[in-house]
Design a protein around this nucleic acid. Structure first.
Lengths: 208, 208
DNA sequence: TGTACATCAGTGAACGCGCGTTCACTGATGTAC
DNA sequence: TGTACATCAGTGAACGCGCGTTCACTGATGTAC
């Protein structure tokens, strides 16, 4: 089967997208090349005409999932008052908890990343930096450093909450964890806004 | 080699302890039975005289690591004024980040747990509940629910921070993440203590 | 436009390898006398 | 106390299996004329 121009790239993208889904669901080591190709409706042999190795695919799939998450965030906050509220609601909810395949790769794959090759970790670091930048804009503080710190704190809370909520076998406890996570992020921001020394003169993040 | 009474249990415990170390370092699927036995100074064949299966060992090793973490916490807070500071300092520091083998299993293994068997998840849930109970006592609030929510929020922030700090390839960014995590937990608690209307009389957690 | 050939993405058998688990065997130690 | 036998934890070869990767082959489509 020889394809028209552009067709090959199209198929490569399909493999990549489905692989991203499969890897987020099953974990970096939890799904085989053959099964990843099956998700794209193909057999395993053709894999290597599109990717140099399994690891190369994993890196690209991870980057894609991060990009998608950031895109979703940007859409969520577009035209709305500055604040992390909307992102927290979309992150710490049941849909995201129950559908890791379509979600943020940080709760699903970070632990595996920390045991991966330097190249994988380098990609991770770069992408994470970009995520933090986007979140930082949502925390108007008296200094960029404080804003960034608040953004990282909120992100860590969101990731930890999803990780826990997915791991527990008890739905009620899991729901409680999501709610506790949402409340924790609110409290972090609220302390800075109302009690901390920021937030007044620059007008800023009054949303929470 | 036939052993004296108690000797077998002694060896079983050694396997379990070393396995806990190995699994926390390499991940649930990142180390073989043969390598786990090597950590205990033995060959792989004898494994099944001590454990029914690899999975049975994983469950026990995970539970052991949780128990150790809780014991460490209890020692840390014994005789000190109520507060989560001591635990946060010991959790979100470089030693814990750089030595997952001796640390809390939640950042290392939770993502794998969420993809594990119901039995594994049941053990996880029970152990997590115990951890939350210990932390809850450190948050004196007007209601048990609010205290527990604050405890879960703090735990989620700690886990997420370690997960991120371990995954990034850049030491400076990693240190920043640890500091942001510590600050975030402080802010969560500070909001309840100083700005919220809790902690004093009834104040119910209507913070936002 | 039609025909002959070249291309190359996709197929599926096969490769070497490492895994979890089993098992016949070993030999140090416990027990009986 | 000394001797003969029984026990069974530990060894390491072997098992079946699934994995990532390779490769000879196929056949639909592009290209030349």
């Amino acid at each position: 089967m020889r394809y028209a121009k552009g067709q090959k790239l199209h198929i490569r993208n399909r493999i990549l997208e489905r692989a991203s889904y499969g890897l987020l669901r099953k974990g970096i080591h939890g799904i085989s090349v053959a099964d990843l190709m099956k998700l794209a409706g193909m057999t395993h042999g053709g894999f290597y005409t599109h990717f140099e190795s399994r690891e190369a695919l994993v890196i690209e799939a991870f980057a894609l999932a991060i990009d998608r998450t950031v895109d979703r965030w940007l859409k969520l906050i577009k035209g709305k008052p500055v604040g992390i509220e909307a992102i927290v609601e979309s992150y710490l909810n049941r849909y995201h908890r129950d559908n890791p395949g379509n979600g943020c790769p940080l709760p699903s794959l970070s632990a595996d990343i920390s045991r991966s090759s330097p190249e994988t970790r380098r990609t991770f670091t770069k992408k994470l930096d970009g995520m933090i930048d986007v979140l930082t804009r949502l925390f108007p503080r008296e200094s960029a450093e404080v804003a960034r710190q608040d953004a990282v704190g909120a992100l860590a809370t969101m990731i930890g909450s999803i990780v826990l909520a997915r791991a527990v076998g008890n739905k009620m406890l899991s729901d409680d964890i999501l709610e506790a996570g949402r409340q924790a992020v609110r409290n972090q921001a609220a302390f800075r806004n109302r009690c901390g020394h920021s937030g007044e003169k620059n007008g800023s993040g009054v949303n929470m």
